[in-house]
Amino acid sequence: MTASSHPVLPEERLAAGVARLAVRHQGRYSLETVQRLIADSYEQLAESAHVSTHLVVLAERFAAASPPCWIPCPAPEASPPRATLHPRLRKNR
């Protein structure tokens, strides 16, 4: 039996959230990274949850709000510095 490269989701309803976040972060994070992020978020919230009714939605929102430090953030595109002159200085030129 071969092991799957995709992490196992603790709740099958999390797959919809994975799909939404994967589309939002397409080109930045892999599908496996998004799955791991949502699975970790779900497990962290489930540890202290007294009611699990909305745990799936909360896990997706938690994952979307703050990517953890183990996900490398893409470097912002460099843009040349832009200087603007104060309107009074432009009149003198």
Rank of each mutant, 00 (worst) to 15 (best):
E60G: 04
E43D: 11
R24S: 09
E47C: 13
Y42N: 01
L37K: 02
Y42Q: 05
Y29I: 09
G27I: 10
E60M: 11
L58F: 13
A22K: 06
A49D: 05
S41L: 03
T33Q: 15
Y42A: 06
H25S: 08
E32V: 12
S41P: 01
Q26D: 12
A16M: 08
H54A: 15
S66K: 12
A59I: 02
S66Y: 09
A16F: 04
A16Y: 06
L31W: 04
L37M: 10
H50T: 13
L37V: 04
I38F: 00
R28V: 04
T33G: 03
V18K: 07
L45N: 00
L31S: 06
A22Y: 03
T33A: 13
R20I: 10
A22H: 03
Q35G: 04
H25M: 09
R36T: 01
L37F: 04
L31G: 01
G27Y: 07
D40V: 03
A46S: 07
S41I: 04
L31R: 09
S48E: 13
R36F: 03
H25A: 13
L45K: 02
V57M: 14
D40C: 04
S48R: 15
V23W: 13
E60W: 02
E60S: 05
H54D: 11
A63P: 00
R61P: 00
L55M: 10
V56C: 00
E32K: 11
A22M: 03
S48L: 14
S30R: 11
T53S: 13
V18T: 06
S30N: 13
L58C: 09
Q26C: 11
V23P: 02
A46H: 02
S41G: 08
F62E: 08
L55K: 03
S41F: 00
S52M: 15
A16D: 15
L31F: 14
A22G: 06
S41C: 11
A19Y: 03
R24M: 13
Q26F: 14
L45M: 03
F62M: 07
V57T: 14
I38R: 05
A64V: 02
S52G: 09
Q35E: 15
P67R: 11
S52A: 15
L58H: 12
A16W: 07
V23Q: 15
S30C: 05
S48Y: 05
A63E: 00
I38W: 01
P67D: 12
R24L: 15
V56E: 02
G17D: 09
V34R: 04
V57G: 08
S66L: 11
H54P: 01
P67I: 09
P67C: 12
E32P: 00
S41T: 04
G27T: 07
G27P: 01
Q26W: 10
V57Y: 13
T33M: 12
A64N: 13
H50W: 08
A46N: 03
G17W: 09
G17A: 15
D40G: 06
L58Y: 10
L37P: 02
E47I: 10
G27C: 06
A65R: 11
A19Q: 12
V23E: 14
R28H: 14
D40S: 10
V56K: 00
S52N: 13
V51Q: 10
R61C: 08
S48Q: 13
Y42D: 02
T53H: 07
A19E: 15
H25T: 13
R20N: 03
S41D: 02
R28T: 04
A49F: 05
H54K: 14
D40N: 14
R36V: 01
A65Q: 04
R28D: 15
V51T: 08
